[in-house]
Design a protein around this nucleic acid. Structure first.
Length: 295
DNA sequence: ACATAGACCTGTTGGC
DNA sequence: TGCCAACAGGTCTATG
């Protein structure tokens, strides 16, 4: 599911419910996801007020008024859903008539929201590549150390990209997937950004920098393409492929605007380009690009 | 430094 | 319809 735009969409969906809410219940329905779940999650979180739901790269960060920051990664198929508060107190039943949980609902948070409603926030992850961990008391954690620049905002410009990539012989595709350089891109948005920039995923990363490691037309184009594709995708609510994206079960729609991703053999949509989208494999993952307009 | 393959998991899809 | 291989938004490790 989740590259940066999808994680940001989840964050925006959770924040209105969770910020200001008090944790009433934490149920670990299995001991582990990709890593063991912290056994003290319930003890740490119950009774705490959630101050903020943040994000760094593809990590969600839950900040409370006392526990360490809870770091959550969605892996490939992780998702959160907020249960409809109304369905939980069916008239005529005693409280706690709850909706059924799925086999892959692994963590359940019961909360009382800032406006007094009781609801549950459920983490579901069929493949269990996701994880939850507590940060250190000072908010740091090895998983967050060494993450590269966020592709939102204006920190990522042609000069920054050129200096990051200068001297690297790895292909652009691999360099852009390296979370230590630019943090938050994944297979989809790397493909889309390279198409927008007219750059081949096979080109050596260092070749978009000048001899002195400075910005070039190519590094500027790529920086703009990355920032734009990420902000376009966030605006569209991310991409929904095989799994639900939004915390209310609705779908993102950026997948309808893919130019190359998962479009093998379709004509390139760049005006005036007669090329066809190709699929190749790079570092074990599918790469989609137009070898006619991406050089 | 870099590439590749394999690992972790389950579910869906496409071909025969 | 059924079966099976291939593949999937991510990352970490081992090995060359």
């Amino acid at each position: 599911m989740p590259e940066l735009p999808e994680v940001e969409t989840v964050r925006r969906g959770l924040a209105p419910t969770l910020e200001g809410a008090v944790v009433k219940e934490v149920e670990l329905r299995r001991p582990d996801l990709r890593f063991p779940l912290p056994a003290d999650m319930p003890a740490q979180l119950i009774g705490r007020k959630i101050i903020a739901v943040g994000r760094r790269a593809k990590y969600l960060l839950f900040q409370t008024d006392g526990a360490p920051v809870l770091i959550c990664h969605l892996g490939m198929t992780g998702s959160f859903r907020i249960e409809d508060a109304d369905t939980q107190h069916t008239p005529g039943t005693f409280h706690h008539e709850r909706s059924k949980l799925d086999a892959h609902d692994h963590v359940v948070f019961g909360v009382r929201t800032a406006d007094g409603a009781e609801t549950r926030v459920v983490f579901n992850d069929p493949r269990r590549f996701g994880f939850m961990l507590f940060a250190n008391p000072d908010g740091t954690h090895p998983m967050l150390d060494g993450l590269g620049v966020e592709p939102t905002g204006n920190a990522l410009d042609g000069r920054m990209l050129a200096s990051l990539f200068a001297g690297r012989s790895a292909p652009l595709k691999a360099a852009l997937l390296d979370q230590r350089l630019v943090a938050g891109l994944g297979n989809i948005y790397v493909a889309e950004a390279l198409w927008r920039a007219g750059l081949s995923p096979r080109r050596a990363a260092g070749s978009i920098a000048s001899r002195t490691g400075g910005a070039t037309l190519r590094s500027e184009r790529l920086a703009v393409a990355i920032r734009n594709v990420i902000s376009d995708a966030i605006e569209a609510g991310g991409s929904s492929l095989r799994d639900y994206m939004h915390v209310d079960g609705s779908l993102g729609y950026f997948q309808h605007r893919f130019s190359v991703y998962d479009r093998e053999a379709q004509p390139c949509s760049k005006p005036g380009c007669a090329g066809t989208v190709r699929r190749i494999v790079q570092s074990g993952r599918s790469t989609f690009f137009c070898s006619s307009c991406q050089r």
